[in-house]
Amino acid sequence: MSPEPPGEDLPAVDPESKPAGPTAGRRRSHVLVGLLVAMLGFALVVQLRQEESDQLSSLRQDDLVRLLDEVTQRGDDLSREQTALLAQRAELLSSGDSRRVAEEAARQRAVVQGILAGTLPVEGPGITVTVVDLNGTVRAHTLYNMLQELRNAGAEAIELSGARLTASSWFADSGTGVTVDGVPLAPPYRWTAIGDAQTLAVALEIPGGALASIRNDGGQTALEQHELVQVTAVRELAEPAFATPAATAPAG
């Protein structure tokens, strides 16, 4: 755009082609034109920036409503998905927990049954009884009686001269001593029983009881109570050949 010719004094035509009156203060109107065009530039830039900064404001109402619907629906979908995922997560967590609990319970059961079945070496408070049988007159029946007395007194693990005694243990007389579970044992017999030491000692010492029977057979007994005794002998369990768990049996 070239500068206006200074001598221009022609009748002007505006965009609407209206005739215009003559001008008086040209310098002032020049400034006015500059001012108006400056306003235009200013407004133009402001509007451009406005459109850049806020794209939503240029949308029509229908578009805005549709956009809002879409956003709302998307939000609903996402919240539903979140709920499902949270439920799934809780389920996984709880199943993990219950599996851990079940594992813990199974481990504890295995320990208890291992102790009862004699497959685990155990330790705890208890007593030791040494039976000296110089003449070889202590009979298997007497030793078996001793085992029953210990069980009655609450002994939880019993060992006789390296043989772990359990529910299926048996005694038989043999030439030099006794046979326990097929293993010949010779005197002196060393009993180790884990349980309440006081109770076990009292139970064995009662008149006419286990120790008295051994003494009647001609043996000598020495009973000691200990804070900690160890039963290290274990048994190998045979797989049951006939018995299987009943289908309706309660678990455990």
Binding site: A12, G21, T23, R26, S29, L40
Partner: peptide, 13 residues
């Protein structure tokens, strides 16, 4: 066109 006038421009603007 050579017919520009400040006042007309301002008014039309």
């Amino acid at each position: 066109d050579g017919v520009f006038d400040d006042k007309v421009f301002a008014v039309s603007f």
